[in-house]
Design a protein around this nucleic acid. Sequence first.
DNA 1: CGGTCTCTTGAGCAGAGTCAATGAACGTGG
DNA 2: CCACGTTCATTGACTCTGCTCAAGAGACCG
Lengths: 234, 234
Amino acid sequence: MMSRKLGQHHNLSDEDRAQFAALPFVLRRVSASDYLVRESQVPEKCAFVVQGYTYRQKLTVNGERQIVSMQIPGDFIDLQNLFLRQSDHNVQALTNGLVAEIAIPALQRVVLTNPAIGKALWIATLIEASMLREWLLNIGRRGAPARLAHLLCEMAVRMKQVGMPIEDSYELPMTQEQIGDALGLTSVHVNRVLRELDRRGLISRSKRRFHVSDWDGLRQAADFNERYLHLDQC
Amino acid sequence: MMSRKLGQHHNLSDEDRAQFAALPFVLRRVSASDYLVRESQVPEKCAFVVQGYTYRQKLTVNGERQIVSMQIPGDFIDLQNLFLRQSDHNVQALTNGLVAEIAIPALQRVVLTNPAIGKALWIATLIEASMLREWLLNIGRRGAPARLAHLLCEMAVRMKQVGMPIEDSYELPMTQEQIGDALGLTSVHVNRVLRELDRRGLISRSKRRFHVSDWDGLRQAADFNERYLHLDQC
DNA sequence: CGGTCTCTTGAGCAGAGTCAATGAACGTGG
DNA sequence: CCACGTTCATTGACTCTGCTCAAGAGACCG
């Protein structure tokens, strides 16, 4: 099951997939808000999301939080710890879920000796960096409505890509405070901007489910171009 | 000379360094503001900075620019293009300088077959991603004075690490507009905040040379912690 | 049923942006 | 060596986006 995720995304041969699947791993259940990685900690394993969602975050000394990326099923949680000795940020579970953990030495060995798997994980890492750059552009240079619309577009596209059912609506289980932390805004302002997008006829909401009434309009409001997701190479 | 850079930073053995140095490469002279990589372009080579500075940037549809990272001598310019088919951002020269270009297929081969070199470039990539995360925190959650102080701290530490002479002062050849684009601010505001840091007794300036009168104060104002640079692993 | 977390909304404030004008520095060609 | 044009830095006046503080309403849970 775990190899399915990777194989699906990275065009591995059966043999390579088998080699990846042969890695000893542990499935672990996690609860919303659990810490999966802590900054400054020395990591021992690499994990990826099997079910549910996680996010990476960093804190200022004043305790202000910035969410720097979201992980959905199939995404690695801490590939950065594969070769770095000390974690440079925190990872928390957004929802209850399931993660698969692999011991770092074993994964290092496979990555450095099996070119196909090595390449697949290189690509995953490079795409993650690309998303970070787009988030920097989003937070640094777009106004609040565009930022929010951009997040909604990105999450929808990524979820659709891993086979989750996104038609006109989808569930994004983030609180408005978490959305604010991901966008460099306050929860109060997120609330107001959500209602603005609603009023503009782009989305409507019920609980944490978003109905997108006008995808084109939303994309346009977001200045969204999916090139940075490198969908053809996942 | 080019292998010196990499070897220095990544503890390679003589043999590995020789193998890296054996890669065919081309030295190319670049002028300030030249584009080295363009978004949506299909890359053919990977380059690193030998002399001078470069930066990565992305644009919104409205033409607003966000600089997402800076490269100093020894840094790769487009390692992301090693495995991604289409570039997702632009790279420009900040100053006149010199870059070394390596053909992608040759570099791919070495990276996937020589574990020591592979690991060294993995680490470089992961550190770059870590810097992107810190920049997100910086832009998303810190006020203008802290943001600016943070950039000044980061550049000083990185330059010192590659052996550039930083005592109490150093040259950062960015215009105030470029600084603004790196921090998600306008050049006007950068100007005002620079004078504020000056007034607070943290720095003084002459042209683009910064004299740091109070390193501890600057670090504190910046909420700067160099962990994210993973200096022990460069 | 009470407690907690989240969402909503209003009023007032402030950090950063916009617009505009002036001056300093620098490179170029005559 | 100087005149000129361009780019960059500086400053003021005014605006506005997004923040702070605060309070109330739902929703959910034990």
